[in-house]
Amino acid sequence: MNLTLNVWRQKDRNAAGRMETYKASHISPDMSFLEMLDVVNEDLIKTGKEPIAFDHDCREGICGMCSLMINGMAHGPERATATCQLHMRKFRDGDEITIEPFRARAFPVLRDLVTDRGALDRIVQAGGFVGVNTGGAPDGNEIPIPRERQETAMDAAACIGCGACVAACKNASAMLYVSAKVGHLVNLPQGQPERQQRVRAMVAQHDHEGFGHCTNQYECQAACPKEISVGFIAQLNREYLHSSFGFAEREDSSTGVG
């Protein structure tokens, strides 16, 4: 396959960026999207030019390090697929592909396609955990957890923290991300004691970082490589409301997403 790429290049956080055009030739349909970029980068290096910087690590769709807006879509056109898992057989010979970084006020560009997503870490630091120290935990089987409850928690916990939900949202809201962590912990007995302060602290940090408000566009769910459900946002909203009024919903009625 031969392709034309329009790629965002930007020297650093403070520099102005611009689109540059590159040819990608002899691309095999079996390559992943990032392997296609590897080929382009090898050619650039051979001619003494600086390679295109992009984030990636595991290349198997789990670490959440890869990003990219591909033809305007976070992680590209394939549903439930992170950029590193996208394969070139989904494109056609002669295609023109536009590649840009995830865009959001809270994700400043560091270089080319690399952005700073540290805000997502800070949201967890504000309260996205169960406050137990190492040691002294009771036997794992002492807290039986109904299977459906645990499965719901796992659905939420599958979030890879890539930030595609933010990039896809016209308000650049990270509510799907926040709701995934809240949903993971609130659906488990272990998450109950800190349930109110957790949701308040995480939402406050979210707003503080400059993410926008959720206006129920659901673009986030469509872009999410792990298909985290917007039902968790609904659950988050209920949690938030209750925590602001200072009482918790009864634990057994909080399954939110089934």
Partner: peptide
């Protein structure tokens, strides 16, 4: 054995049987 207990306490959603046990 302690590791499993610790992780459960942190909220790691290990697979469960229908009866709720690990």
């Amino acid at each position: 054995v302690q590791i499993i207990d610790q992780c459960v306490a942190q909220g790691v959603p290990f697979a469960r049987e229908y009866g709720g046990l690990l």
